[in-house]
């Protein structure tokens, strides 16, 4: 009877070990988006190209799209831009840009130098839509389905691995043929 109790510390260590081991591979800086499964928040913002055009959440409806949050001041946005261009041109992905806390002038400089993969660009100089989307660091990329509902959020650079493992499955899922 007493010998059984000798195994209690071993058992406790095993339980704790399993818990800690499970947490080991996780990246603590990625947070689950609470918006997944919810519609994109209401907004009314200017188009980057034309201050007279006001955009609202209907730009994200009708077709499964990527919503890419970017800014000229964000170094990782420069890194991922080439791959976004590839997705738009070669894969026919509709990408809506959210120019986040930037200025028109610098945003245009960025696009002139690297090209423009975006179908439409929402201009959000104060970061209000970014705030409502829970954006805490550009670049972030959201998969939005045809009804304008957020299906997935990726924080960080989009590259081939992210596309294959995360964004493409989420887009297929949103298209209903996952």
């Amino acid at each position: 009877m007493k010998r059984v109790f000798l195994f209690v510390p071993l058992l406790a260590a095993l339980v704790v070990g399993v818990f800690l081991f499970a947490g080991l591979g996780k990246d603590p800086t990625t947070l689950e988006s609470v918006l997944v499964g919810k519609p994109v928040p209401e907004f009314s913002l200017e188009s980057l190209d034309d201050p007279d055009v006001t955009l609202d959440r209907s730009v994200l409806e009708g077709k499964v799209s990527l919503l890419n949050v970017w800014a000229e001041w964000c170094p990782s946005c420069w890194d991922e831009h080439e791959y976004l261009s590839y997705l738009a041109k070669e894969q026919g992905v509709r990408i809506v840009g959210l120019n986040y806390k930037d200025q028109r002038e610098t945003a245009f400089r960025f696009l002139n130098r690297l090209g423009n993969p975006y179908d439409t660009i929402i201009f959000d100089p104060k970061g209000t839509l970014g705030f409502d989307l829970g954006v805490y660091g550009a670049p972030e990329t959201f998969v939005i389905d045809a009804e304008g509902v957020v299906r997935y959020r990726h924080v960080g650079v989009v590259n081939e691995q992210v596309w294959r493992q995360k964004l493409l499955p989420a887009m297929n899922d949103a298209r209903g043929n996952g």
Binding site: L31, E32, V34, F131, G134
Partner: peptide
């Protein structure tokens, strides 16, 4: 704020 950024 939790609705936007999560319980975190």
């Amino acid at each position: 704020l939790v609705d936007r950024f999560g319980e975190f």
